[in-house]
Write a protein that binds this DNA or RNA. Structure first.
Lengths: 68, 68
DNA sequence: GGATAATGTAAAGCAAACTTTACGTCAAGT
DNA sequence: ACTTGACGTAAAGTTTGCTTTACATTATCC
């Protein structure tokens, strides 16, 4: 999985800290997702899409080796 | 989170077993998702949407208490 | 040069997703 | 009556998502 979280975040003028707060998760979670260390859970991904007023597929991009 | 997995699966004439096989997961995973025992991971949700040629949002529906 | 904001790493621990195995039920078909 | 297919439950174990804490780096700004 690749993702465009940091692009969306920056476009919306949010720091990792502010975004984490909005989403109700820790800043570490944002960093880890942006850095591709792990994938968000489904509900978290959907809330992220909702906040940026777009679709899950617009932010998160499947790759060959997903799953697994 | 609510989901329409079993609707989509039946509409496509698949048993839980066949779907699990297509997705590369266990049958237990399908049962658990359909029964709402837990949410799929993001990549799994996206592959499900892909298989049924629709969007994640069309199959999985956010509710008030997501997250968390 | 010290303060502050933003981003990053690391590690320990808890919770959720997923697997495997094994067994139960019910309907349909022969 | 028994087999077979589809759906279900339960429990133990591994992996992954997420939290918390603590510390490092870089840039800006007074």
């Amino acid at each position: 999985m690749k993702n465009k979280l940091s692009e969306h975040r920056k476009k919306n003028g949010l720091s990792q800290d502010k975004l984490a707060e909005k989403l109700g998760v820790s800043r570490q979670t944002i960093i880890s997702i942006e850095k591709g260390r792990y994938n968000p859970s489904l509900p978290l991904a959907m809330i992220i899409a909702e906040i940026f007023q777009t679709s899950v597929e617009d932010i998160f991009i499947l790759e060959e080796d997903d799953y697994k």
